[in-house]
């Protein structure tokens, strides 16, 4: 028999949560992921105050300064702007876009998943087939087409990333809700005459919160990657606003002369995405009460 973590259940909540926390902290990778993210967050939000340069300060005499020269820890770009200052600002933007996209896509995916799972039959079938149809498009193609058709602003980029990354979550939640739908406590709720909306979001959803949290964490990783892809290709966040992706946009042509332009932002993206993936994986293990 499978037991599920109940977050809404107050009298056992603290115990369960601490057990989950302990499980999570025992996972080395998850802790490493947390550390990586903490370093990144500290760099992005405290770093700018420690650097003498502004990220928009152009100094043509200091173009292509290699890392660790002239007070530029990561060197400078083709306009002589400090790469570290730009990287920290870009990190803020990319993390923010990833986080917002996660919130929106989690809301979309959860709603569709819960409704499809609870009602089942043709409502569920229609919603899940729509989900499948969205999954049939390679997401980079869909994203680029949307980004090219819509005037790209950071808000729009966030929205279209969200619109193209809710499907996996919807599938997971649908399956989870389906397995909970016929349990006794839901039958009891129905007998009490509770409305469908209440049962779905107050009774069922809290019991499916584990997979939602895991999927949401992994969605941030995915959103940061997707933003990097489309910004690298020139259809995402537009300069002069830096993002981790668009910093790599011009890097290819300077690969021979200034490789740090490609190496530094790439490592930052990889760190951010790996961090969230490690945490997501750790959460999956910690929240999975079935394992023990």
């Amino acid at each position: 028999m499978s037991t599920t973590t109940t977050f809404s259940n107050n009298n056992s909540g603290s115990w369960r949560q601490s057990r989950v926390l302990r499980q999570f902290l025992r996972n080395k990778l998850a802790v490493i992921g947390m550390l990586m993210l903490l370093i990144l967050l500290a760099a992005c939000f405290i770093g700018p105050h420690l650097i003498a340069y502004d990220e928009l300060h152009i100094d043509l005499r200091a173009r292509f300064a290699p890392p660790l020269t002239g007070g530029h820890i990561f060197g400078t770009d083709p306009l002589g702007r400090d790469l570290a200052a730009r990287l920290f600002h870009a990190g803020q933007i990319s993390l923010f876009v990833g986080f917002c996209a996660m919130i929106i896509s989690t809301v979309i995916g959860t709603t569709i998943g819960v409704v499809a799972g609870y009602y089942g039959r043709w409502v569920g079938a229609v919603l899940m087939r729509i989900t499948d149809a969205f999954l049939s498009f390679p997401s980079v193609f869909l994203l680029l087409a949307l980004a090219a058709f819509i005037k790209p602003s950071p808000v729009m980029i966030t929205l279209i990333i969200a619109v193209t990354s809710w499907m996996e979550l919807a599938r997971i939640i649908e399956a989870e809700i389906k397995s909970l739908r016929d349990r006794e406590f839901i039958q009891a709720a129905r007998m009490l005459g509770l409305r469908g909306r209440w049962i779905m979001f107050r009774e069922l959803l809290p019991n499916a919160m584990g997979p939602v949290i895991v999927a949401a964490t992994l969605t941030i990783a995915r959103a940061i990657l997707l933003e990097a892809y489309i910004s690298f290709l020139g259809y995402g966040i537009q300069p002069p606003l830096p993002s981790l992706g668009n910093m790599l946009n011009g890097a290819q042509q300077y690969l021979t002369s200034a490789p740090w332009l490609a190496i530094v932002p790439g490592i930052a993206i990889t760190m951010a995405v790996t961090g969230f993936n490690f945490i997501g994986d750790g959460l999956r293990d910690a929240l999975d009460t079935r394992k023990g």
Partner: peptide, 20 residues
């Protein structure tokens, strides 16, 4: 561990580094 890192590396960046 490597599989998870590989899933986190942006393809285009891996391409750039390989070219380099």
């Amino acid at each position: 561990v490597l599989a998870m890192v590989a899933l986190s590396v942006p393809t285009f960046w891996f391409g750039l580094i390989s070219i380099y």
